[in-house]
């Protein structure tokens, strides 16, 4: 199954922990997981647990415009993309969960 996760809140929000644990659990069960970060959610790429997700095979994309607005530096664990990537994840997912 393909699981899509949208996260728009910043790291101190409990959504981050929930999204990370959900992604880890889904990957452990062999599902394909894609995460899209936007708005304050882009701050999450600074969280080392998010980098660990990408090492576990979770695909992470985010809105480059929102990172520019917030001064979030580029990191390797995520595709600095656009709403096109958000739409592609939503289109391709069997299940899509939004945390915002």
């Amino acid at each position: 199954m393909k699981l899509g996760i949208l996260l728009t809140t910043s790291p101190e929000n409990e959504n981050t922990h929930t999204a990370i644990e959900l992604a880890k659990a889904a990957r452990a069960m062999g599902h394909e997981v894609s995460v899209f970060l936007m708005e304050d959610g882009v701050y999450n790429v600074r969280d080392k647990n998010f980098a660990a997700l990408s090492e576990a095979g979770v695909k992470i994309a985010l809105c480059a415009l929102n990172t520019e607005d917030r001064g979030v530096e580029k990191v390797d664990c995520a595709l600095f993309g656009s709403q096109y990537d958000h739409a592609s994840i939503a289109h391709d997912s069997d299940r899509f969960i939004s945390f915002g």
Binding site: A64, E68, F80, S82, Y84, D85
Partner: peptide, 15 residues
């Protein structure tokens, strides 16, 4: 004149 667009628009159009 928007740097992220120059990376993302071509990639999306190729897609």
């Amino acid at each position: 004149d928007h740097a992220p667009a120059v990376e993302n628009v071509p990639r999306s159009l190729r897609n």
